[in-house]
Amino acid sequence: MRVALFITCFNDTLFPQTGRAVVTLLERLGAQVDFPEAQTCCGQMHTNTGYQDRGRSLARRFERVFAGADAVVSPSASCVAYLRENGAGLDGRLAELTEFLVDRLGVEDVGATFPHRVVLHPTCHSVRLMGIGDRPRRLLERVRGIDLVEMGNAAECCGFGGTFSVKNADTSMAMLSDKLCDVLDTGAEVCTAADNSCLLHIGGALRRQRAGVRVMHLAEILAAT
């Protein structure tokens, strides 16, 4: 199976290790990965800030770049949800990574080993916008050696919200500090999610606090052997 990777501008620039993990994982599962290099940004940042004409034109650009692909996978629930909402879901060919693994490839055990205590932040856009359900959890539960723990108030927003974290930095920080408490309460070594945007936010504060907990995209755990 051939699949085109939409890495997202955010991951491309700031989290290349997530992209490498996605490639490793998909190739291990027998897929042939393409990377259309013309891809840039889906337009979500512009749209969410109010610059919707530009946001839409970037979504259209995404559609053109991936027009020829049979299947497109992306490790960002937030970008996938945005593209679908804006009519750029490529007629169902665009899938978020965990959807692609569970629904298209039909695997839950991806052959990963990760002997650490891990807490999953479900992320608002994964759960509420995209309806990802329990796919991330099902995938994590099959990872060998993992100690998957639950956090309190898991479904609550971490306070990122893209432009919100900058325009309303004080409120964003108040939300983040509560999320950190919930993460730290679990005693987890790793906080994971299906989206690096939340993890940038949570991870930034964990690092600033020298909290001794690291963040990893779900793909990186699933790629680990």
């Binding site: 992209g19 990377f35 930034g204």
Partner: peptide, 26 residues
């Protein structure tokens, strides 16, 4: 307020291009 990660030395696309056995591109 939140620590920002260093921007990595190599972007994903740069890594992709540097891969030894690159599959056929779309």
């Amino acid at each position: 307020m939140r620590g920002l990660p260093e921007v990595p030395e190599q972007s994903f696309r740069e890594w992709w291009r540097s891969r030894p056995a690159r599959p056929v591109r779309g």
